[in-house]
Simulated scan of single mutants.
Amino acid sequence: MKKLFLGLLTALLIVMAAGCSAKSEGADNSSEQAESSSSKDKTINFGVTPWTSTVPPTKIASLILQDMGYNVKETKANVSGVFMGMSRGEVDVFMDAWFPMHKVQMKKFGDKLERTAVSYPKAKTGWVVPTYMKDINSVSDLKGKEGEFNNKMYGIEEGASATKESNEMIEAYGLDMKQVNSSEGGMLAQADRLMKQEKPVVFFGWRPHTMFNKYDLKVLKNDKGFFESSSVEVVTNSKLKEKAPEAYEFLKNWSISIDDVEQMIVEIEDQGKDPEKVAREWINNHQDKVNKMMGK
């Protein structure tokens, strides 16, 4: 009986030890999983301006980050609001910053922001006219002909860097013109109305944009250094690297071609396709590129 009792006690101790070991191992695994989960249990907030060029890269990056396990959110605002939000840590990412135009905002907010990646270089911006205006090929050609345009140049919203630069260009060239500001859609609606009548019109244009697919346009040359070719970049707030390191590394590796963005804008704006479906299709068709950006 004594031997039997000792045998049973030994067996019980072995079982208890194994159970404790399993619990300890399970706790370790649980801890590791919790740690991994907590690193992804973050919401990445994208700043979204009312520009068509902002939508495709934002939707693509958003879907990829969701695939990586992050939550995502979009905050719509004008460009000044987006940069202000990033400086306060309320917005994490802006996928459509244009340089040198947005150097002013970067200088204003200093080390609170970071130029994280280049989406695509050499995007054209500036004043545009329809190609049927044969005699207008540069900004200086407008001098003395302002009356033909009703002394108006059409621009995007107040507060945009492009709006400020257009006003500076009017002054630099001594043009008797006033910039009429509205939303991107409002500007294009006015330009479209005039172009349908083949009347003179000058307005702000940029690539990538469907305006260059819909209309025959030319960007006016200028010899005073305004509206240089832009580098379109990803800007993040400086806390993102610590807040969500894997998301930051993905954004650090981000790139896309201007032709791809323009094609997606056409599909979304002209063909009425759902932006997320268009973005998902791009991801599926560029999996090697996506894997590279994700560091795989």
Rank of each mutant, 00 (worst) to 15 (best):
V180Y: 03
V91H: 01
L9W: 08
K292Y: 04
D141Q: 04
K2F: 13
D288P: 03
V201H: 00
K124C: 05
N291L: 12
F212M: 11
H209C: 10
M68S: 04
E184W: 15
Y132A: 12
V82G: 02
K40N: 00
T52M: 06
G81L: 11
Q66E: 15
R88T: 09
G85A: 08
S138K: 00
M169W: 02
A61L: 07
I44C: 02
K214C: 04
V91C: 02
S87D: 05
I60N: 04
W51A: 13
A17W: 07
S138N: 05
A123S: 15
V278N: 00
P56N: 08
A244M: 11
I60H: 08
Q287K: 10
A189T: 12
E246N: 02
L63C: 02
L12M: 09
E171Q: 10
Q33S: 08
M195L: 07
Q179L: 15
W51R: 00
R115Y: 04
E233S: 11
F149N: 00
S257R: 02
K23E: 12
A18V: 14
N285M: 06
T131S: 15
S24F: 13
M86D: 11
L13Q: 05
E228H: 08
K196R: 11
V104K: 11
I14L: 15
M84Y: 10
S21F: 14
S257T: 15
N284K: 04
N151A: 09
A34V: 14
K224N: 08
A22S: 06
G26W: 10
S161N: 05
V48K: 00
P208E: 14
M101P: 00
N29D: 03
Q66L: 09
V93Y: 08
G155Y: 09
A27G: 01
S166G: 07
M106A: 13
T116V: 14
S230W: 01
G89A: 11
K107G: 02
A247Q: 05
I64Q: 04
D41A: 13
E146C: 12
K23A: 14
A11T: 11
S166A: 14
R280A: 15
L8N: 01
P275R: 08
C20D: 00
I156T: 08
D192G: 03
Y132Q: 11
G19H: 09
S183K: 01
K112W: 03
Y215N: 10
Y173T: 11
D274L: 10
K196V: 05
E276R: 02
G225W: 09
P130D: 13
Q287H: 00
E168G: 12
S231R: 03
L251W: 07
